[in-house]
Simulated scan of single mutants.
Amino acid sequence: MTTEAYLAFLAVGIALVLIDGQIIYRSGRGYLENSYGDAAAGASMTRLVTVLFHLVTLGLLALLSTIPLGDGDLPGVVGRLGVLLLVLALVHAITLALLGRMRGEQVGEAAVANRRISAREADRMPTTTVTPVPGQDGRNPDVSPSLENRAPYSAS
């Protein structure tokens, strides 16, 4: 492979990596900002994931550029670009899975925090006398017992 073909492959590969990284960054930023409510934290996490994406894919691009593929310049460049696109798709999917997992954790944390706030607000409410449902402790039972077994309701 000639130097011109090698440089052409690197130029096209770097452009593809940068374009895909920007797509991930812009989409991921909005995705994570809306899940937790803190725009700065969502943008920061998205930047970290995007930098990781760029480092991994540029490293794979550098390694891929050294592997001999094809007999001539054009088949070599096209073959390397094909492999690069497949690797880029795989790393893109892994990055999306990582962003989805981060969003799931943030949504879960927000739900737990909201539940704690709701529990505190319920404790501040004026106390009324509530007759507990048989088989359940506390003044605010979650569900009523099933009629057949006189036991707490179960989903199974």
Rank of each mutant, 00 (worst) to 15 (best):
D20Y: 11
L69R: 10
P75N: 03
G30K: 02
T2H: 12
T128C: 03
V91M: 00
D73R: 06
P132N: 00
H92N: 13
A11V: 08
A62L: 08
I19V: 15
A93M: 10
V107T: 09
H92I: 03
R80P: 01
M125S: 15
L7K: 11
R80F: 04
G70C: 10
T3V: 15
A39I: 09
L96A: 04
L99F: 02
R150W: 14
A97R: 10
P132Q: 02
G138I: 00
P132L: 01
L7Q: 13
R101L: 08
D71I: 14
V112T: 13
Q22D: 12
D137E: 12
V133A: 00
V133R: 00
M1E: 12
M125C: 10
L88Y: 02
N34M: 13
P68Y: 01
Q22C: 15
G28R: 00
G42P: 03
E33T: 05
S154W: 13
S156W: 10
L48A: 15
R101Q: 14
L90N: 10
T46W: 00
E105T: 08
R116F: 04
A15M: 07
G59S: 07
G37P: 01
V91N: 03
P134Q: 07
L74T: 11
D137N: 09
N114P: 11
N114K: 06
D142H: 06
A40W: 12
D123S: 02
N34P: 08
S156H: 13
A97P: 04
Y31I: 01
R150T: 13
V56P: 00
T57V: 09
L64G: 03
P145E: 05
G72K: 05
R115C: 06
A111H: 07
L90S: 08
L63S: 07
Q22I: 09
P132T: 00
P145A: 03
L58T: 10
A119H: 07
S146C: 14
Y31E: 04
T66Q: 07
V112I: 15
L81N: 04
A41S: 10
A113G: 03
L69D: 01
A43T: 10
V91K: 00
L48W: 11
V143I: 11
A11I: 11
L147D: 09
N34S: 14
G59N: 08
T50D: 02
L90D: 09
A41E: 11
S144Y: 15
R47L: 10
V77L: 09
R150F: 15
R139A: 00
R47A: 14
V143D: 09
I94M: 06
L55V: 14
V49C: 02
T66L: 10
V112F: 05
Y31R: 07
S35R: 05
G37A: 05
T57F: 03
V87G: 06
G72N: 07
L85V: 12
Y31C: 04
A11R: 05
